[in-house]
Amino acid sequence: MLSTMRHAALFIALIAAAPMAPQPVMAAGLPVITMKDGVITPARINVPAGKTVRIVVRNTGRAAAEFESKALHIERIVPPAGQIVITLRNPAPGAYAFVDEFTENRASAHGVIIAK
């Protein structure tokens, strides 16, 4: 049992030893999707197809959100009052649905990214 705990501690230490250098997020000028406690604005956003596109996902709500898109293969936590940047690498023309998974039962929590 003792060695069990030692192994666990080691694993957690490895996980925690993340590179600690701050990563400046170049968010200026990027399109923004805002999530606010189950309401996504805009629910529809256009991006150019065939290019690498970066989008800021901002959470202005009080609860954490989870940006999930099976079509884009993205599942990321967006902390309250925080933001993440998602990257679409050369999306083919089409519609890519996404949702705030934590409030997926609400229609307002669903959105779509249109690449054309």
């Binding site: 666990a8 590179p19 954490a64 990321r76 925080g82 990257t87």
Partner: peptide, 22 residues
Amino acid sequence: AGLALAAALAWVMLHLPAWLPP
């Protein structure tokens, strides 16, 4: 150990997303 790992990961996801390489 999984509970400890979950807590650690949750903390990282909530507090470090802007500091970690994406």
